[in-house]
Write a protein that binds this DNA or RNA. Structure first.
Lengths: 206, 206
DNA sequence: GTCTATAGACTGATAGAC
DNA sequence: GTCTATCAGTCTATAGAC
């Protein structure tokens, strides 16, 4: 199935998988080479070093994690209620397909905050002053909700969507009996529940 | 300030710090020894190997993360509303003091699920059927709330409390201008807001 | 471009003196 | 118990053949 893609792409796919699973520290270039079905030397031929390969994967991973909802957040032709539905659905679907992504990004930043943020280009970008925040603020003002900011609501959306997926192994071991099937149902239920809860917080009536 | 504690304790404190920051893979035994102010050989004298030392720290970390609220969750003499307040406050305070803890635990489980769960004793324990879940279920039944389970609510409490602390570095870089001071206020606000939101979900009137 | 073989650096762990 | 010195293994990276 990966017959017609370039060697470079094969290595990147393998690197993404291994880095996401093990993290930079525990990932071995040999693992990546083996996973890609090529020789170790070839990895350095294409990417010069483990670190350079990592930087590329990290940059793409950040893109993957935030690019997901950037369009949605900034869209001016979608009303707040629909937008909440769509952000939750998109986050849960996307992270479910790539469950290691958030923990990879977050823990690498924790292990090496300066490097990731400076070298991989995250500096200066801001999520404040986007259209979604404006829509939330309008709703807060309209209903006279006290003490709530758009950022708080946004963090709630992200928290409630991502955390149960990030914590899947923990959840499946702590809440027995909880098999794959039960977990899937649990997440599917959340896809409907989270928007309801967010709208409750913002007093959006449907 | 650490004059009267044993060498063993000094090493454990150093190990906890280094492991929590860097994770197992990127932590070096030499870093731990230096942080503890002792020689590398002494680390192996007390703990035989990096892995054994890690297992001890991981066991304690899990204890730290869950032991926190076990008493609270099982307490039969605290009503649901107060319990929600206390769980949120305790989680936020404790994780704020030890912000690397959750990501350390979660990402090590991700990197090595079998090992952590089997070797470090997490198997068989269940959070279902505790008194908090019973209290939440009663409230759900009483109000006739549809489609919501105690587990969903519990995950919401944990998600909304932990995630903003875990994601602090990201948050502080993505939502400029956001300094230490602003972040502290943001978290302090959440301490009051999260219980309100949870009670909203459960239709608890105060 | 892709391989084998190996250099060179780092890391965990131990031997042995005190 | 604590140290210095060092080994043995592993890892990244490269040289060089094809």
């Amino acid at each position: 199935m990966e017959k017609d893609i370039s060697t470079e792409e094969k290595i990147k796919n393998a690197a993404r998988k291994v880095f996401h699973e093990k993290g930079y520290g525990q990932a071995r270039t040999r693992d990546i080479a083996e996973e890609a079905g090529i020789n170790l030397a070839l990895l350095n031929y294409y990417f010069r070093s483990k670190e350079k390969l990592f930087d590329i994967i990290m940059k793409e991973s950040l893109q993957e994690m935030f690019g997901l909802i950037v369009n949605l957040v900034n869209a001016e032709d979608i009303n707040l209620s629909d937008k909440i539905d769509m952000i939750v659905a998109r986050y849960i679907d996307s992270i479910s397909k790539n469950p290691n992504l958030p923990l990879f990004v977050l823990s690498e930043i924790q292990a090496n905050p300066h490097k990731i943020i400076e070298n991989v280009g995250l500096k200066g970008k801001s999520i404040a002053n986007n259209f979604l925040f404006k829509q939330i603020q309008e709703q807060i003002d309209k209903k006279g909700i006290k003490g709530v900011t758009p950022l708080q609501i946004f963090i709630n959306i992200v928290s409630m969507s991502i955390f149960p997926i990030v914590g899947k192994p923990l959840l499946m071991n702590l809440h027995a009996p909880f098999g794959e099937k039960e977990y899937e149902i649990f997440i599917e239920e959340r896809k409907a529940l989270i928007p309801q809860w967010i709208k409750m917080m913002l007093q959006i009536d449907e």
